[in-house]
Amino acid sequence: MTTSTTTAVANKSEMKAEIPLGRNASGRSWKKVATKRSSSLTKTKVNNQTKTWEQRRAEKLHRKEVLELQKQLTEERVKAIRDKKERRLENEKRRTENEYEHAKKLSQSLNNSKLKSTLKTMSKKQLRQIKKTRVNTKTGAVEFIPAYSK
């Protein structure tokens, strides 16, 4: 019994010795064997690890300038978007007011006594132009809806 255990131990030690250097015991080839610790690497002026006070100050100043420029550009972009939106809303408001004024004048020209005969003589295209007014509950503005919509 002792001979078989010693041979088993000897076989295991032989298997470990058979693994070639530069290869992991697990057989995972993508895992690299660590050869040096980062603390053992020397830091010299050659590999730019140490910088003078002036260099660090200049880098900090440059970084600050870049951040300020970036902030300014974003502010300009946001301002342009805001102005564009404001202009679009103003144009939309003016358009609805003009439409309301136009419809008001048109409704005055249609006399109630003549309304039936006028509607009968109108073409389909003209009938589609007739709109009803409705007050928007959210904005309080008067808006137009098609006469035959539900």
Rank of each mutant, 00 (worst) to 15 (best):
T3C: 00
T5S: 03
T7G: 01
A8Q: 10
V9Y: 04
V9F: 07
V9C: 00
K12N: 10
K12W: 07
S13H: 01
E14R: 13
K16F: 12
A17R: 03
A17Y: 01
I19V: 15
G22W: 01
R23E: 12
S26P: 02
S26N: 14
G27V: 02
R28N: 13
R28V: 12
R28S: 04
S29A: 14
W30K: 12
V33K: 14
T35I: 05
K36F: 06
K36C: 02
R37N: 08
T42R: 13
K43Y: 01
N47D: 15
Q49K: 05
K51G: 00
Q55Y: 03
Q55I: 07
R56L: 14
A58T: 13
L61S: 14
H62L: 14
R63W: 05
R63T: 13
E65H: 07
V66C: 05
L67A: 15
E68M: 02
E68R: 02
Q72D: 10
Q72C: 03
L73G: 05
L73C: 06
L73F: 07
T74Q: 09
E76Y: 10
V78W: 05
V78I: 13
K79Y: 09
I81H: 08
D83C: 03
D83I: 04
D83Q: 08
E86F: 08
E86R: 06
R88S: 12
R88Y: 08
L89D: 15
L89N: 15
N91H: 11
K93N: 10
R94V: 12
R95V: 04
E97N: 07
N98V: 04
A103T: 04
K104A: 15
K104S: 15
Q108F: 12
S109H: 11
S109R: 13
L110N: 03
N112K: 07
N112M: 03
N112S: 08
S113T: 07
S113R: 02
L115E: 02
S117N: 14
K120S: 11
K120H: 06
T121D: 14
M122E: 00
M122A: 02
S123I: 02
K125G: 06
Q129A: 15
Q129P: 00
K132T: 07
K132G: 05
T133P: 10
T133Y: 09
R134H: 06
V135R: 06
T139W: 04
T139Q: 01
G140Y: 04
V142A: 03
E143T: 11
E143H: 06
F144C: 01
I145R: 06
Y148P: 00
Y148E: 11
S149G: 02
S149W: 08
K150F: 06
